[in-house]
Simulated assay, not measured.
Amino acid sequence: MDAALELFWKHGYEGTSMAMLTESIGVNVASLYAAFGNKESLFVQCVERYSELNGDLYHESLKKKTAREVACSILEGEVELVTRRGTPNGCLMIQGALTTSPAAEKIRQMMARMRNTAEKWMSARFRQAIAEGDLPSDADPAALACYLMTLNSGLAVQAKSGVGKKQLLKVIQISMRGWPLLPARSYVSARRDSGA
Rank of each mutant, 00 (worst) to 15 (best):
A143L: 13
E80M: 02
A97K: 04
A118W: 03
V79D: 01
H59D: 14
E80Y: 01
L148Y: 02
A118T: 11
D140S: 14
R68I: 08
E132V: 05
Y58L: 08
R68N: 12
Q95M: 12
A142Q: 12
E105V: 11
E80K: 07
L144F: 11
P180A: 07
S51R: 03
G154F: 00
N152Y: 00
A131R: 08
Q109Y: 02
R113F: 10
A184F: 05
G26A: 00
E23A: 14
T66P: 10
F36E: 08
K120E: 13
L151I: 15
E132L: 13
N28Q: 06
V188K: 11
L32T: 05
A196Q: 13
V70P: 07
S123Q: 08
R115H: 05
A184R: 10
S51K: 05
V188H: 10
Q173L: 06
R113P: 04
E69D: 13
L168S: 06
N28A: 07
A97G: 14
K165V: 00
A184E: 13
V157E: 10
N89D: 14
E48V: 05
G55N: 01
P183Q: 06
N116L: 10
R177E: 15
G164D: 14
A190Q: 15
E40Q: 15
F126R: 03
E14A: 12
K160D: 11
L21T: 04
G26D: 02
F43I: 08
A156M: 03
L32V: 07
P88G: 11
I174T: 15
A190M: 14
M1D: 06
G37T: 09
V188G: 08
A71T: 10
K65L: 10
V188T: 14
S17F: 02
E78S: 13
E23F: 01
S17Y: 02
K170V: 12
C146V: 11
S31M: 04
Q173A: 14
S51H: 06
R185E: 15
K165N: 08
R127E: 15
Y187C: 11
A145P: 09
E52V: 11
E60Q: 10
C146N: 15
M110T: 05
A159D: 03
R113E: 12
G77H: 00
L169T: 04
M149N: 09
Y33R: 14
E6C: 07
R113I: 06
G37C: 09
P136T: 04
Y147C: 15
V79L: 00
A196K: 12
D138Y: 07
L182Y: 10
E14S: 13
G86Y: 05
D140Y: 05
A196P: 01
M20K: 05
T117H: 13
D138T: 11
T100E: 03
R192S: 14
K170I: 05
D193A: 15
A35E: 04
E76S: 14
